[in-house]
């Protein structure tokens, strides 16, 4: 199955996000070997050069590491993965807050609503 990608944003940036997500969510564990650029490009139905660019970006950030003989793997630095997880969480919350404000909620109202809803979830 091709990866679901937005049509109006750069492809490589979206590939970076997907791969970050797969690492943060534990689909790939720390130290796991990653598939080759070609394999992943075929899986995602994107150009291999674009996948290569996404890999380079992730290498720069240190999240994935290139070994000279055995391809690429996820970093074993768990703190770094945690850090990126937190960053992604903050971005999501920021976006959520903006949407809620557009709906006309204040920050306190948002917090109250979240508390109520999570309590309901616990009861269920």
């Amino acid at each position: 199955m091709a990866w679901a990608l937005d049509s109006d944003r750069p492809i490589y940036a979206q590939l970076v996000e997907k791969l970050q997500m797969q690492i943060v969510s534990g689909f790939y564990h720390p130290g796991d070997k990653l598939p080759s650029v070609r394999e992943l490009a075929q899986e995602a139905s994107v150009n291999p050069n674009t996948m290569q660019k996404a890999f380079s970006e992730l290498e720069k950030s240190g999240l994935i590491i290139t070994m000279r003989t055995s391809g690429r793997s996820v970093t074993e630095d768990v703190d770094m993965i945690k850090g990126i997880q937190l960053e992604l969480a903050k971005e999501n919350i920021k976006e959520f807050l903006e949407n809620m404000k557009q709906l006309g909620y204040t920050e306190e109202e948002i917090v109250t609503l979240i508390k109520e809803m999570t309590k309901e979830d616990i009861k269920e």
Binding site: S7, D8, R9, P10, I11, Y12, A13, T50, K53
Partner: peptide, 15 residues
């Protein structure tokens, strides 16, 4: 490049 068009215009190549 496709990504340059998307980056600079915020649009797909098709659009």
């Amino acid at each position: 490049s496709v990504d340059d068009i998307r980056e600079n215009t915020g649009k797909s190549v098709d659009t």
